[in-house]
Simulated assay, not measured.
Amino acid sequence: MICRMWHGITPRSKADAYADLLEPALSGYRAVPGNISAQVLRRDEAEVTHFMTVTYWESEDSIRAFAGDDVLTARYFPEDDGYLLAFEPFVQHYTVAAVLGAA
Rank of each mutant, 00 (worst) to 15 (best):
V54S: 12
T73F: 04
E45L: 15
Y76K: 03
R64T: 08
R42G: 11
A65G: 02
D61Y: 09
A17G: 00
T55K: 05
V40N: 12
Y94E: 05
Q92L: 12
F77G: 01
H7Q: 12
R30V: 04
L85F: 07
P11I: 00
A86M: 09
R43K: 15
A31Y: 05
A86H: 07
A86S: 11
Y83W: 08
P11V: 00
N35R: 09
Y76D: 05
G34Y: 07
F90S: 14
A25W: 11
Q39H: 15
L41F: 15
A25M: 11
T10F: 06
M52S: 13
S59N: 09
M1G: 00
G101V: 03
F66S: 04
Y56F: 15
Y56V: 03
D69Q: 04
K14P: 00
Q39A: 12
P78E: 04
T49H: 14
S59K: 07
R75P: 02
A65H: 03
S59W: 09
V91A: 14
H50W: 13
Y83Q: 06
V96H: 06
T95D: 15
T10G: 07
T10Y: 04
D69W: 06
D20K: 12
F77D: 04
L41K: 13
I2R: 08
R42F: 10
C3G: 02
M5W: 09
M52E: 08
E88P: 10
L72R: 06
A103R: 03
D69E: 11
A25L: 12
Y83T: 01
D80H: 03
V71Q: 05
S27Y: 09
V96R: 03
V91E: 06
V99D: 02
E60Y: 13
I2Q: 06
F90Q: 14
A17L: 05
D61G: 05
A103N: 03
D20V: 00
T49G: 14
L26A: 07
P24H: 08
A19F: 03
D69C: 00
M52G: 08
A97P: 00
E23K: 09
